[in-house]
Design a protein around this nucleic acid. Structure first.
Lengths: 162, 162
DNA sequence: CCATTTTATCTTGATGTCAAGATAACCGCA
DNA sequence: TGCGGTTATCTTGACATCAAGATAAAATGG
């Protein structure tokens, strides 16, 4: 519908002083990310999940048996606030996909554990999800992917320091 | 804190059947996008804006004099719903940065036009914004940026068809 | 010229998120 | 033992967004 080079052309006309080369690349990264998320989200919804709940369940699954992590562990890997995590867990618990299990060693904390239903659902959803991801990058060769990983890592390195 | 290769290693252990190569690249794109947006957002806030209002004002600015577009034009370029756009314009109007001007040719529609205050603010914010963008990509060479643009365009082409 | 369809914008109610703060339990050290 | 600081989780209120539908004006086409 509208592309980034058109936007650069507009800026060149209205604000010829500015350097739009960084914008050209950043714009592509942000746009591509949004489109990828939109597509992946459709898959999650097919399994009765949204992206947020998929993320929580997938994190539990890949942690391996007994599929239990604390809310604190979960929010640290997901870069969301504690209030957001409480809400996500509440929803998943209401749907019977996880349960809160008390931690006998520390009564402040709980474990969020996949139920059997939750494990089955996320197992299937992940299988579907990775197939969709394969399709989403099918326009790119293995070499493209490797090149992309390398350059993106350079960009990530500059931003992830802390 | 945690990186994408660690996540792949977890999956390799728990679900050795799945192909995580696409995930490795998609994960990097999405993560980098989030970090870039976070940084850019800080700049917007310095000018009393959020990312949403910056987007609207910048779109008006780059459209050139008379800095006026319809809500419909704006929401089309921004991929948000009409309700969201109504809300964004309401906020900006309340802050005196834009005003709604009736379209004499079509009484269903209005123009959203930058006020003089709004024009000054977005002009300064854009100047700042592009400098920040330059800093955000400073870890990448011009060649990296060009390579990245090329590969991202391939990915975008596959997803933007409609 | 009227009825129907389309277009442009706004309204409403639900949801997911955050920031800030509340609550409760744990820890270290006197 | 007990007190101050820290940690883990939850609560609250505000906000941006969306989907669905309401409203009003314009375009279409018999």
């Amino acid at each position: 519908m509208f592309n980034i080079e058109d936007i650069r052309a507009q800026w060149a006309k209205q604000r010829p002083d500015i350097d739009t080369a960084p914008m050209a690349t950043i714009g592509r990264v942000v746009r591509l990310s949004a489109l990828l998320c939109e597509q992946m989200s459709k898959t999650h919804e097919k399994h009765g999940l949204n992206s947020a709940s998929f993320d929580v369940l997938a994190t539990l699954l890949r942690s391996g048996p007994p599929y239990a992590l604390s809310p604190n562990d979960l929010l640290a890997t997901m870069m969301v606030t504690s209030g957001t995590m409480t809400n996500r867990i509440d929803q998943l618990e209401k749907d019977g996909l996880v349960e809160r299990v008390r931690n006998p060693k520390d009564r402040r904390s709980v474990f969020v554990q996949l139920t059997e239903t939750g494990r089955k659902i996320i197992d299937a959803a992940v299988t579907d999800h990775v197939m969709v991801q394969r399709n989403l990058v099918e326009g790119l060769s293995d070499e493209d992917l490797a090149t992309l990983n390398g350059i993106l890592d350079k960009g990530l390195a500059a931003l992830s320091q802390d």
